[in-house]
């Protein structure tokens, strides 16, 4: 956008009459209230229907505890795995040119477009009793499907692209010059990554980790296929919610669900903070005087206010 100040008179032609503005705003807020706020409020009221004591009782129950622990364990394994992968994938895709790069990027996006149920099914087909590795696993007494490893694998699959997808456009936009300078000045590859690349991508990284974590803790479909639904052993929190709900233990179901809703709200808060912080940093760097005046012929003169590549943290994530 150009920094040219718009005269107040021109503003009138490019916006709507006040009543249209109010009507559209009211419609939008009404829709959001109905579809987003009301369900959240319903979770809270249903969970507290029988008071705080019943709420705590439902959460203190051993099976609920086991579900919470399993969910935390799953996320604690899946998120770091996908973090390492995301950084590696972004490094090789953003920093180099090679054949088949766009194909590789599409493949990384693939798990987003696979139905969670299909994601669970493919692991059953590989590790299940009738699957490829089933007989061998059975011989060695290793259980993957209908046990914790299967849950972790399915979670890794559905959260696979989150961090890579956040980092690739960010690192592509930042280019290679800073890293090249570091290497030329004698830094090792690791030092370059640690002190040059990492500070540049930290917000995008955090953003991806948060979204990845939210999905890892909340995944239902894929985990439901590979979990044996054994109470206290292979039920994650969302699965435990389902079991309780189907047993008509509504208060208990909504109590566990309320924890997941709180997780979602915390995710949104951290995500917004990350967005604002990175936005502010981008603005701060944009206001700095150019380092090499007269040496930027490549920048189109049409947008002098924005000499830096601005990549807003992508929200296209998470199909």
């Amino acid at each position: 956008m150009s920094a040219r100040p718009t005269p107040r008179t021109a503003q009138r032609g490019t916006t709507e009459a006040p009543w249209v503005r109010y009507l559209l705003t009211a419609l939008a807020l009404g829709f959001m209230g109905l579809f987003l706020v009301l369900p959240l409020a319903a979770v809270a009221t249903e969970a507290l229907r029988n008071g705080w004591d019943a709420y705590w009782e439902a959460l203190k129950e051993p099976d609920a505890w086991a579900a919470i622990r399993l969910t935390l364990l799953t996320a604690a394994i899946a998120v770091p795995l996908n973090l390492v992968f995301g950084v590696a994938a972004a490094w090789c895709i953003a920093k180099y040119e090679f054949k088949g790069k766009s194909f590789l990027t599409t493949l990384i996006d693939l798990p987003f477009s696979v139905s969670p149920v299909v994601a669970g099914l493919i692991y059953v087909l590989v590790f299940g009793a009738q699957g490829w590795l089933g007989p061998w696993l059975m011989e060695h007494d290793i259980k993957i499907v209908f046990a914790v490893p299967g849950i972790v694998l399915a979670t890794v699959f559905v959260t696979f692209p989150f961090i890579a997808r956040e980092l690739i456009p960010l690192m592509q936009a930042q280019g290679n010059e800073e890293e090249q300078a570091a290497i030329v000045l004698g830094a090792t590859g690791w030092q370059t990554f640690r002190y040059v690349t990492l500070p540049n991508i930290k917000w995008g990284l955090l953003y991806g980790v948060i979204l990845c974590n939210a999905r890892a803790m909340g995944e239902f479909g894929a985990v439901s296929v590979v979990s044996g639904h054994i109470r206290g052993q292979t039920n994650t929190m969302p699965l435990h919610v389902e079991v309780l709900y189907n047993e008509y233990q509504s208060v208990a179901a909504f109590a566990v669900a309320s924890l997941l809703a709180i997780l979602a709200l915390v995710t949104l808060v951290i995500k917004s903070i990350v967005e604002w912080r990175s936005e502010r940093e981008l603005q701060a760097t944009a206001e700095l005087p150019p380092e090499r005046p007269g040496d930027t012929p490549a920048a189109p003169p049409s947008n002098p206010a924005e000499p830096y590549v601005h990549v807003p943290l992508a929200s296209r994530a998470a199909i």
């Binding site: 939210a214 509504s250 669900a257 809703a261």
Partner: peptide, 26 residues
Amino acid sequence: KKIVDALVDLPFALPTAVAGISLTAL
């Protein structure tokens, strides 16, 4: 407005099972 903007992403962040039971309850 900022809160509304952040809330748009709720369906991404809210586990689907929670969305399912709360919509049903409503």
